[in-house]
């Protein structure tokens, strides 16, 4: 299927593509800066030299574009890994952070924290708890109905997603329209326009720790994806391993929501795309999915901030690209749903 060298070269290619995209994204935007100037500014700042051009250009490159690019890369990678992990541990290629209700749960958690006038860490903790609660309910419903089918888990996700949607509506209804509503809507829509380095930095520890844990258990996610019984006969403590994986991927999703709000489709579609590139084995899939997700969100966000006179919410673009792609995947692979 895929030899080690092929996978390695695909990953190197993705890494190079990401680097190209980062540089390209650095150079485009509404503020007129030539690519050379952008790179000079970046170079000067990285090596602590005096910037060669005007101050505003420096602020645009270092204060606006760089944080956004970093955030798009980190969040794209986090959501894709989160989606791939959920798909593995639930042995279900139809699930994703948004389809399991995790994103909307995290969004609700964040909204409650906003209503309680919490900030920073408080919002993060609430978002994480909201996401965890949502995924717990989603997983519990098929168990209660004693059904193990993939479709049941998806239906359960729709139930939880719908419930969370209504709860969010309720929170918006009781929110202060002037101060709180706008920030709740901002979370809901998904945007990177006000990302700054401190916000991104505050979620980085959670993202890095979760990523390390998920990557180091990626081979075990393969074992679990064979099914609970198979994994147990292979000596895996399925419940514990799965719970660790759920915690980490929920933490990844919640961190992404904290920075950028809910961004749909990414966590579902990118793992599938990466699987087409490097095969289904999670040891290979997770790094590739992270890279593809980073590139994808970076391209989408760059488009969102350069096309049109005002910024487009990210979920619009990810949906326009993601939904048809998923339909094509279903057609192409004629995925077994049961």
């Amino acid at each position: 299927m895929h030899s080690k060298w092929l996978v390695l070269s695909i990953n190197l290619f993705l890494l190079a593509a990401l680097a190209v995209c980062v540089v390209w994204s650095m150079c485009v935007g509404k503020y007129p800066i030539t690519p050379l100037e952008s790179l000079q500014i970046l170079y000067a700042n990285v090596f602590g030299l005096a910037a060669p051009t005007d101050q505003m250009a420096e602020k645009v490159v270092m204060g606006l574009r760089l944080p956004r690019i970093l955030a798009a890369v980190v969040i794209g990678a986090a959501l894709s890994m989160s989606g791939a992990t959920y798909q593995g541990i639930f042995k279900n290629p139809l699930v994703s952070p948004d389809f399991l209700g995790v994103s909307s749960g995290a969004c609700i958690g964040a909204a409650i924290a906003i209503l309680m006038s919490l900030s920073g860490t408080g919002i993060q903790i609430f978002a994480f708890c909201g996401g965890l609660l949502a995924v717990t309910i989603t997983v519990a419903i098929p168990r209660l109905l004693k059904s193990d089918s993939n479709i049941m888990l998806v239906l359960s996700g729709i139930i939880v997603g719908g419930l969370m949607g209504s709860l969010l509506g309720l929170l918006k209804y009781i929110a202060d329209p002037e101060t709180q509503l706008a920030s709740i809507v901002y979370w809901q829509m998904g945007s990177l326009s006000y990302v700054n380095l401190p916000t991104l930095g505050s979620v980085m520890p959670a993202i890095i720790v979760s990523t390390i844990i998920i990557l180091s258990m990626s081979w075990w996610i393969d074992v679990i994806s064979l099914g609970e019984r198979d994994a147990q006969t292979l000596g895996v403590n399925v419940r514990r391993t799965r719970n660790i994986a759920i915690l980490c991927s929920t933490l990844l999703t919640a961190s992404a929501v904290c920075v950028a709000g809910t961004i749909g489709w990414l966590g579902l579609v990118i793992p599938h795309f990466a699987r087409m590139l490097v095969g289904p084995e999670n040891t290979r899939l997770l790094p590739a999915a992270a890279l593809v997700g980073a590139i994808f969100l970076l391209l989408v966000d760059t488009a969102a901030r350069t096309i049109g006179s005002s910024e487009m919410p990210l979920s619009i673009l990810t949906g326009i690209i993601g939904a048809p792609f998923f339909a094509w995947l279903l057609y192409r692979r004629r995925m077994k749903l049961h």
């Binding site: 393969d222 074992v223 064979l226 292979l234 000596g235 895996v236 095969g279």
Partner: peptide
């Protein structure tokens, strides 16, 4: 199973 792991990968999981 849900994912088409290679037979070699599948058999290697027996080492778990």
């Amino acid at each position: 199973p849900a994912y088409g792991y290679s037979v070699l990968h599948f058999v290697t999981m027996g080492r778990a």
